[in-house]
Amino acid sequence: MGVQYIGMDQLPLNCSGRIININMDNLLKRKLTDMGMIKGTEFKVEGQAPLGDPIRINLRGYNLAIRKSDAKNILVERI
């Protein structure tokens, strides 16, 4: 078996990952792309809200909060 791809929401805290694919409608995908989330972008899961959702990731030097239900549509690879 090669590398496993998982939803971004599956990545444990303090783990880094790389974006493989974003399966969202065009508008949202565009928004994320413009904010620097593109295939190949590396990021790290740095925290989560008190109730476990949303999560906080760091990419391109800034912090982004994203709901797990949105994050699950972002396919990532753990690195």
């Binding site: 949202l28 928004k31 994320l32 949303p54 800034y62 912090n63 909060a65 994203i66 709901r67 949105d70």
Partner: peptide, 10 residues
């Protein structure tokens, strides 16, 4: 209709 939470934490 959709809702999402994608927000920078400055």
């Amino acid at each position: 209709e959709k809702s999402y939470f994608i927000m920078e934490l400055p």
